[in-house]
Simulated assay, not measured.
Amino acid sequence: MTASWSPEDLRRLDSVGELEIAVERSDGSLRGWVPIWVVCTGGQAYVRTWYRRDTGWFGHALRSRRARIRVPRLEADVAIDDIGDGSPQVTADVDAAYRAKYGRAGAGSMVTPTAAAATLRLDRR
């Protein structure tokens, strides 16, 4: 079951450069913490990788669909929804959020079609 992010949670997520994500194993234990850029738009939190792959934190996230995230003053269990081939409007909104937060140069590799296909929505559990 998922819950909505509170406005305060979204502000916390959006105020940091990176969150840390630990993907859940099948036995419920957590893998190691990995730093990843995060953006918020439309009341949702999103992360991406540069390219879609079956390895590393991203591959584990695709298989598990569950993780824990943390930023200062917030630690939460999340459900992971793969929305990479989703709505063109959501893709445009997430691209815009990456550009606004990380700057055109910093976000460059995160707003390509390849990166957009590797977009995950984090839903609070």
Rank of each mutant, 00 (worst) to 15 (best):
R68Q: 15
R68S: 14
R70M: 01
R70Y: 00
V71A: 01
V71N: 00
P72A: 15
P72D: 15
R73G: 12
L74D: 10
L74F: 14
E75C: 12
E75N: 08
A76Y: 02
D77C: 09
D77R: 14
D77K: 14
D77L: 12
V78R: 02
V78Q: 06
A79P: 06
A79K: 12
I80W: 08
D82A: 02
I83M: 03
G84K: 05
G84C: 08
G84D: 01
D85I: 01
D85K: 09
G86P: 10
S87D: 10
P88M: 01
P88I: 07
P88E: 04
Q89W: 04
Q89K: 05
V90H: 01
V90E: 02
V90Q: 04
T91N: 06
D93E: 04
V94Y: 00
V94R: 00
D95A: 09
D95N: 06
A96F: 01
A97R: 02
A97H: 03
Y98K: 11
Y98H: 07
Y98Q: 09
Y98R: 02
Y98F: 08
R99G: 01
R99A: 13
A100S: 15
K101S: 08
Y102N: 14
Y102D: 13
Y102T: 11
G103E: 12
A105Y: 08
A105K: 15
A105R: 14
A107Q: 09
A107F: 01
G108K: 11
S109V: 10
S109K: 10
S109Y: 06
M110V: 04
M110Q: 09
V111S: 14
V111D: 13
V111P: 09
V111I: 13
T112W: 02
T112E: 02
T112R: 09
P113Q: 07
P113Y: 08
P113A: 04
